[in-house]
C-alpha cells in the first residue's frame, strides 16, 4: 500500500501530520512522539519579528474542546532559522513552515528569508488566525484580498504553497477557489473557529482577550464539512484538520475528500495519536482493499440530494 501524498513537486511519506501551533518547533515533543514517523510537521506560525503573544490567561477548556488566544507568539524569522530549523531539518521529515503576518509584506519576508534554507518542504500560509487584530483572518475572509496575497507570494518560491482557511466565513469554496486561482498548490482546513467562554462567577471571559480560537473534538463536523466542500470546489489536494482525536476521525476526513490530515489539539491529551492514527488508517485501507490515499475519497457512497 502506498500512502504517500504528492503536492506540487514534493511528497509526504504518509498522510498524518501534526498541526501548526500545537507542536511548537517539534523539539518540545521529542521525548513523547517518534518524530521520524510523522508525515509532516507544521511549525508554529513564523512572523518576521518575534512576537510575545496575547495577554494571559490564553487558554480555557470547553465541552469537548478548548479555546486558545496565543496571539501567534513565536521566535521570529531570524531565531527560527538559527535555533529551530537545524533540529527540524535533522529529522528528515517534511517541514512545512506556517507563515503569518499583519501585512502582505510580512508573509513575503518570511518566505524570502527561508528560500535559501535547505530542507524546508513548503509553506502553509496562515490567513485564518482569529487571535490577532490585524492581518491574519482579514486575508482569509475576503476572496479578492486572499487572491492578491497568494499572487504576491507565488513567484517567491517553487516549494508547495498550502493555504490554510478559516471556517469563520460565509463561503469557504469561494475562498479556496481564489487561493488556487492565484497559485496555491493545496488548501488546508480548518483553522480554529471563533469562540468565547464566560466565567459566571467572575462574570468575565475566561480568556483575557475574550474571543478566542475554538478547537478540539467538538469542531470535527465543521472541519469535515469544510473539506468536503473544498475538495469538490478545487482541483488541488485538500489537507483536513479540526477535531481529529482518533483514526476514525482521520478516515472521515479522507472519505470526505482530504488527501492528508493534521492532528491538532487532541495531541495535547494523547501524544501517541499520530502513530495510532496512521496505524488505523492503514488497517482500514487494507480491509477496504484501498491501495492509495486517493481511494478513500473515491469510496464515499453518497450523492448530494437537491
Amino acid at each position: 500500500m502506498d500512502l504517500s501524498v504528492r503536492i506540487r513537486n514534493s511528497v509526504f511519506p504518509n498522510p498524518v501530520g501534526v498541526a501548526s501551533g500545537v507542536f511548537g518547533y517539534a523539539k518540545e515533543y521529542e521525548l513523547l512522539v517518534p518524530l521520524q514517523q510523522l508525515g509532516a510537521i507544521y511549525t508554529k506560525a513564523i512572523t518576521p519579528k518575534p512576537r510575545a503573544g496575547n495577554p494571559a490567561p490564553r487558554l480555557a477548556e470547553t465541552r469537548w474542546g478548548m479555546l486558545n488566544s496565543i496571539g501567534l507568539a513565536n521566535v521570529g524569522l531570524s531565531a527560527f532559522r538559527s535555533q529551530k530549523l537545524p533540529f527540524l531539518r535533522s529529522l528528515g521529515v517534511p517541514v512545512v513552515v506556517n507563515v503569518a503576518g499583519s501585512v502582505e509584506e510580512d508573509y513575503a519576508e518570511v518566505i524570502r528569508g527561508l528560500e535559501s534554507e535547505a530542507d524546508v518542504w513548503g509553506y502553509e500560509v496562515n490567513v485564518s488566525c482569529p487571535n490577532v487584530r490585524h492581518g491574519g483572518q482579514s486575508f482569509g475572509s475576503r476572496p479578492e484580498v486572499l487572491h492578491d496575497l497568494i499572487r504576491l507570494l507565488r513567484p517567491l518560491t517553487d516549494r508547495p504553497l498550502v493555504v490554510k482557511l478559516s471556517p469563520n466565513t460565509a463561503d469557504i469554496a469561494e475562498l479556496g477557489r481564489a487561493a488556487v486561482a492565484a497559485g496555491a498548490d493545496a488548501l488546508s482546513a480548518i483553522n480554529t473557529l471563533k469562540g468565547m467562554v464566560i466565567d459566571i462567577h467572575k462574570k468575565r471571559p475566561k480568556v483575557r482577550r475574550g474571543i478566542a480560537g475554538f478547537s478540539g473534538p467538538a469542531v470535527l463536523p465543521v472541519g469535515v464539512a469544510a473539506v468536503y466542500t473544498l475538495s469538490r470546489a478545487v482541483p488541488v489536494p485538500v489537507i483536513g484538520l479540526g477535531g481529529i482525536a482518533g483514526w476514525e476521525d482521520a478516515v472521515q476526513y479522507l472519505l470526505a475528500g482530504a488527501s492528508a490530515i493534521q492532528v491538532g489539539s487532541a495531541l495535547f491529551r494523547d501524544p501517541d495519536l499520530p502513530v495510532s492514527i496512521l496505524k488505523g488508517i492503514r488497517t482500514y485501507a487494507e480491509h477496504q482493499g484501498f491501495t492509495q490515499v486517493g481511494d478513500f475519497a473515491a469510496a464515499l457512497k453518497w450523492e448530494e440530494v437537491g
Binding site: 518540545e28 515533543y29 508554529k44 503573544g53 490564553r58 487558554l59 496565543i70
Partner: peptide, 12 residues
C-alpha cells in the same frame, strides 16, 4: 496556570 500541552509547545 491553565495548561494545554504542558511540554512547552503551545505557549498557552
Amino acid at each position: 496556570e491553565m495548561m494545554g500541552c504542558a511540554v512547552g509547545a503551545c505557549m498557552g
